[in-house]
Amino acid sequence: MTDTPTKTAAAKPAHRSGFAAAAREFVLIVVGALIVSSILRAFVGQMFIIPSESMENTLLVGDRVVVEKITDVKRGDVVVFEDPGGWLGAEESGQKRGQVGRFFEVVGLLPDSSHGHLIKRLIGMPGDKIECCDTKGRLLVNGQPLEETSYLYPGDAASQMEFQVTVPAGRIFVMGDHRSASGDSRVHLQDVDAEGGNPGDAAFVPLDKVTGRAILVVWPAGRWAKLGVPDTFKSVPAAAGPPPAKPSISLTPPPK
């Protein structure tokens, strides 16, 4: 008597098992990629969309910029920071995405809509004295005039508002490149910050609210460019002394 060959039932389950294993591996790869992307966004860098005209023509509305979070910020950097309290109007704040959009922002698959953030140029570090303006209409930082024509919006003055300030400890002084259309530190020199305190406290951005420095314009493709520190900031001397605990503010011009 001969045995008749029998069909094994193993082929189909093996196929299903192989498909399930591949599906599990794919899910693990996707989840791993999202985790890595989220970590990079949190600690290394992320992309932001420019929401307003305050940094024209360096940055235009709708530009996508890469912001890195590893390097300490310095004078002349273009910096992104959280609203220190009462700075943002509707025209300055990016449009808030829905839950799905926010998820893709958090995991780094969409550029940040910039909701709740601002972007300006860092003019003064803690302890710096900033004055407007000298006899030629130039901003002074620690007594050194800034030559701002390389980045200042065409036709704009360094500032229409006169002031002398010393930046307090743990804070920075920022200004937009489009000075006539920027609600920056100058505008808040008589405001009280969100926690209360002295008039003018709100003008100085806490360093712990700084997200990072913008280093690249990556979109639109035709506007790809590096963002660095203008040469004029390289000649600014160090602050004359340690930063004060409270800001020094005078809404008068410096001695001519």
Score class of each variant (00 low, 15 high):
65 V>Q: 00
114 S>L: 01
170 G>S: 11
43 F>R: 10
193 D>Y: 01
171 R>Q: 08
231 D>Q: 11
18 G>N: 12
196 G>E: 04
246 K>D: 14
81 F>S: 12
127 G>I: 06
80 V>T: 11
167 V>N: 00
156 D>R: 00
226 K>R: 15
39 I>Q: 05
91 E>P: 00
232 T>I: 02
225 A>Y: 06
202 A>M: 03
145 P>A: 10
219 W>A: 12
215 I>F: 09
195 E>I: 06
245 A>L: 13
69 K>R: 15
205 V>N: 00
186 R>C: 05
55 M>S: 07
228 G>F: 10
90 A>F: 06
191 D>N: 15
105 E>P: 01
149 T>E: 15
58 T>F: 01
9 A>I: 14
81 F>Y: 10
108 G>S: 10
198 N>V: 13
217 V>T: 08
71 T>E: 15
101 G>I: 08
109 L>N: 11
54 S>L: 01
139 L>Y: 05
100 V>C: 07
152 L>D: 00
104 F>D: 07
95 Q>F: 11
40 L>N: 13
256 K>G: 10
173 F>D: 00
37 S>D: 11
55 M>L: 06
172 I>G: 03
16 R>H: 14
139 L>A: 10
181 A>P: 02
2 T>L: 06
70 I>K: 14
163 F>H: 07
130 I>H: 09
222 G>R: 03
58 T>H: 00
54 S>E: 00
242 P>H: 04
